[in-house]
Design a protein around this nucleic acid. Structure first.
Lengths: 162, 162
DNA sequence: CACTTTAACTTGGCCGGCCAATCAATGCGC
DNA sequence: GCGCATTGATTGGCCGGCCAAGTTAAAGTG
């Protein structure tokens, strides 16, 4: 039962020992993203775009900078995502008359059909994710994730308006 | 306080309503990945590669297919990752004499120095992530994540050898 | 009013990750 | 022994995401 010559001296399941929660979090997040992708794909969206659209559906026409702050992503990420969403007809952009550097972004009328489907898909995903968890467990999970978020947020960006 | 003409009729903070846990999970996962990236970058690794290296350090020379199964990623993802790790000198590959389709992969000797640093970095990340959480909370979080993983795993791949 | 700093994007480059399609070698049924 | 399904791995394509650098325009400062 020892055909392999030991990779490194004293190597012992380091992934789990060094950070069990981090490890589990990574795995779960990946699975969750794949599951989201499967559902969204049918709607013609890619995982990540939902957040942008969600915000636009709620907030109406907004400055791009505001959108960036809201979703908390890198500006360049949002730019590219918007270019694709615009191409797909879900989003419209126009220059801000008040500030010639800025852009105003808004969801198109046709995209509004999508909205309910995205909400439904997202809700379905939530159900799958939390199957078998009681109401108390769900709230506890949410609470703990909130604490973790509060821990990581400052470590990543000083500005953490959430 | 209502300058915007309402994006969609009846749009109400759908992201949070439709799936608060899913939403929080996505946010936390992204922050966690960024934090991991920051730490790993100094070691010359990119986020995601740690899992591959960890397994190789523990398991020694393995068939690539086994590695793929272990990390649970898409085969193509592992292939590309290995190509880069090989280029960086962290990994060595050679054809499997027993099966001319397969490859045997193993961590290089020089990569063993990296190992302790990766473990340390990963441990540090765990600390940051879980700051302010009691031992009971940590175990509870781990337990809940485990349940979620069990939920999502079958939804993504039938084969769920974990 | 010129000059500097800051803000709002954009571009290019690179990696992780997925999917779909492909190629090569093995195994299996008959 | 021969054809066919299966397995192992790779390629190409595309997207999300980051970082670093660059561009344009607004705001602050003397």
């Amino acid at each position: 039962m020892n055909p392999e010559p030991a990779a490194c001296p004293g190597a012992l399941s380091a992934a789990a020992i060094g950070g069990p929660v981090s490890h589990s979090l990574s795995v779960v997040a990946r699975l969750h993203r794949i599951a989201a992708g499967r559902v969204l794909r049918r709607l013609g969206l890619y995982p990540g775009q939902e957040f942008v659209m969600m915000h636009l559906w709620e907030a109406g026409a907004v400055r791009q900078s505001e959108l960036i702050k809201a979703v908390g992503l890198d500006p360049s990420t949002v730019t590219k995502s918007l270019q694709r969403l615009e191409q797909a007809g879900h989003v419209r952009r126009r220059p801000d008359p008040a500030d010639r550097r800025a852009s105003l972004v808004e969801a198109t009328e046709t995209s509004c059909e999508l909205r309910s489907q995205v909400v439904a898909a997202w809700s379905e995903l939530e159900d799958t994710t939390l199957a078998g968890l009681g109401e108390g467990e769900r709230q506890e999970l949410l609470r703990l994730l909130g604490k973790v978020e509060a821990n990581l947020c400052p470590a990543v960006a000083e500005e953490c308006a959430d």
